[in-house]
Amino acid sequence: MQIFVKTATGKTITLEVEPSDTIENVKAKIQDKEGIPPDQQRLAFAGKQLEDGRTLSDYNIQKESTLHLALR
């Protein structure tokens, strides 16, 4: 499925993911596309910060959802 990640600079990244993917996997995909190390990424959805060990389906993130990326 496709999801979107909006960066602090307003850029939107499109990612191909599975509901079973962990947040860690998603951060690795962002690193592949943007070169941002996962340990510098903070992802949020619906106002909640997402934890590495959880999956997209844990957070009820569905196709075409938009996550927000902040850098630490």
Rank of each mutant, 00 (worst) to 15 (best):
K11F: 12
R42T: 06
D32R: 08
F4L: 08
F4T: 14
E51Y: 07
Q49M: 13
T12H: 08
K33E: 08
P19M: 08
R72Y: 09
Y59T: 02
L15T: 01
G53C: 04
L67V: 13
L43M: 04
T55H: 07
L50N: 00
A44E: 09
P37V: 12
K33T: 08
K63N: 06
I30T: 02
A44Q: 14
I23C: 02
E34Q: 04
G47S: 08
N25A: 09
D21V: 06
L50I: 05
V5D: 00
A8N: 10
I23D: 01
Q41K: 01
T14A: 09
A70T: 05
Q40P: 03
D39P: 05
L71R: 09
R54Q: 08
E24V: 13
I36Q: 03
R42Q: 06
K63G: 08
I3Q: 00
T55P: 07
V17P: 01
Q31M: 08
F45R: 02
N60V: 06
E16A: 13
L71W: 10
S57F: 14
Q41E: 01
H68P: 01
R72S: 12
K29G: 05
I23E: 01
A8W: 10
M1W: 09
V17M: 11
A28L: 12
G35N: 06
A46M: 13
E51A: 05
R72G: 12
K27G: 01
D52F: 05
E34M: 10
R72V: 08
D52L: 06
T66G: 02
E18R: 11
Q2W: 07
T12W: 12
A28Q: 15
V5K: 00
D52Y: 13
T66E: 13
L15Q: 01
K11C: 04
G53E: 12
K6Y: 14
F4Y: 14
P38H: 15
T55Y: 13
P19Y: 08
E64K: 06
N60A: 10
S57R: 13
K33F: 14
K63C: 03
D32F: 09
R42N: 10
A8T: 08
R72D: 15
L56Q: 00
I30V: 04
Q49R: 07
K48A: 10
P37M: 09
P38M: 15
N60E: 03
E16R: 08
T22F: 09
K6M: 15
Q2Y: 14
Q49E: 13
L15H: 00
I30N: 01
T55K: 09
D21F: 13
K11N: 09
L56C: 03
L50W: 01
S65E: 13
D58V: 05
S57T: 11
N25I: 06
N60G: 10
P38A: 10
G35E: 06
R54N: 10
H68S: 13
A28H: 06
L67H: 01
D52P: 04
P19L: 14
S65R: 03
D52T: 10
L71G: 10
P37Y: 13
D58I: 05
D58S: 10
K27E: 01
S20L: 12
I3N: 00
L56I: 11
L67I: 14
E64R: 10
L71I: 06
Q31E: 11
D21K: 02
Q41F: 08
L43Y: 03
N25F: 14
K11T: 07
V17H: 03
L50E: 00
D52M: 06
L69Q: 03
N60R: 15
L71F: 06
Q62V: 10
S20V: 13
G35F: 11
F45G: 02
A46N: 05
G47F: 07
E51K: 05
K63Q: 15
T7H: 12
P37T: 07
I61Q: 01
K11P: 12
V17Y: 07
D21R: 02
I23L: 08
S20K: 11
E51V: 09
A8F: 07
D52S: 12
A44V: 05
Q40H: 14
K48R: 10
S57Y: 12
G35V: 03
R54G: 14
K33N: 11
K33L: 10
Q40R: 09
I36A: 05
Q2S: 05
I30E: 00
K48H: 10
L67A: 01
S57I: 06
T7R: 05
L67T: 02
F45T: 03
Y59S: 03
D39Q: 08
L67E: 01
I61N: 00
G10L: 12
A8H: 11
V17C: 03
R42Y: 11
D39I: 11
H68Y: 10
L56D: 00
T9L: 08
F4D: 03
D39V: 09
E34W: 05
T9M: 12
N25P: 01
K27M: 06
I36N: 05
T22Y: 08
L67D: 01
I36K: 03
T22N: 09
K11A: 12
G47R: 06
L69T: 02
V26M: 04
H68N: 15
D52V: 07
A46Y: 14
L43N: 00
L71N: 09
V17E: 01
H68T: 10
Q41N: 03
D21Q: 07
L15N: 00
T7G: 06
T9H: 03
A70W: 10
D39H: 06
K33M: 15
E18Q: 12
T9D: 15
I3R: 00
I3F: 01
M1V: 09
K11Y: 11
T7F: 14
L67P: 01
Q41H: 03
G47W: 06
I13M: 06
G10D: 14
N60M: 15
E18H: 12
G47Y: 05
P37F: 07
D21C: 04
T12F: 15
Q31L: 13
L69M: 10
A46W: 06
F45Q: 04
R42P: 02
Q62M: 12
M1G: 03
A28W: 15
L56N: 01
D58A: 13
E34S: 08
L15M: 08
I13V: 07
G53A: 12
L15W: 01
F4E: 04
G53K: 11
V26K: 00
P37E: 12
G47M: 03
Q31T: 10
K29A: 10
T14W: 09
